[in-house]
Simulated scan of single mutants.
Amino acid sequence: MKEFTCIVCPKGCRIVVDDTGIRGAGCERGVEYVTKEMRTPVRMATSTVRLTGSSLPRLPVKTSAPIEKRMLMRAVKLLNDVTVTAPVKCGDVVLKDILGTGIDFVATKSACRL
């Protein structure tokens, strides 16, 4: 038996999956969420990269889309070698095509030059 809390809507249904099936979903979207979560769980990755030419030492970044959970640590580790030079605008691509997924790391904050 596995338990999930659905995050698709604010209701937060408690969904149980066992030998008899999926129970507790308040809607079809909950069933779809749990089915995907059991097959291929995905998460947004957030981190920071080094930033030069600005008063900020680090620039916050996130993935442009959810990435498979199994790839998360490898993806974030790639950021260790990334240094960005100001100016940077929120939404600028910092690292393109992470691990061949087509997903990018993008800046989540703008940074001006000193």
Results as ranks from 00 to 15, higher is better:
V31D: 01
V93P: 02
M44G: 03
M38Y: 03
V106Q: 04
T40R: 10
G26R: 12
G100C: 06
L95C: 11
S110F: 02
V88W: 11
V106C: 02
T83V: 12
D81I: 07
L79W: 03
D92C: 03
N80L: 09
P10Q: 14
T5Q: 11
K36D: 13
I98W: 03
G12N: 13
E28R: 13
K2G: 01
G91K: 03
L95M: 12
T85C: 05
T108G: 05
T52V: 13
L95H: 14
A25E: 04
C112A: 13
T46Q: 12
C112H: 06
S55M: 11
A107R: 04
G30W: 00
R23M: 05
T52L: 06
S47W: 06
T83I: 05
V94Q: 09
V82A: 07
F4K: 00
K109N: 14
D18R: 02
I15G: 01
A75P: 05
R70E: 14
L79D: 06
L51F: 05
E3W: 08
D92I: 08
T101R: 04
C9T: 12
L51R: 10
T63D: 03
P57W: 03
G91N: 01
S54I: 08
I7R: 12
V88H: 09
K2C: 01
E32Q: 11
K36Y: 12
M38C: 07
Y33C: 08
V82R: 10
G100T: 15
D92P: 06
I7T: 14
K11E: 13
P41I: 00
P87Y: 09
L59T: 08
V8P: 02
M71I: 12
C90D: 02
K77L: 13
V84Q: 06
M38V: 04
V8K: 08
R14V: 13
D81F: 11
R58N: 15
F4T: 01
P60E: 11
K36C: 00
G26T: 12
T85N: 09
M44V: 15
T52W: 00
L56K: 09
G102Q: 12
I103V: 15
V61H: 10
C27N: 11
L56Q: 14
L78Q: 12
M1D: 06
L99V: 07
E28Y: 07
I67H: 01
T5P: 02
Y33A: 04
K69R: 09
I7H: 00
T101Q: 02
I7W: 00
C13G: 00
V42N: 14
K69W: 08
M73W: 07
T35S: 03
R29N: 14
K96L: 01
K89Y: 06
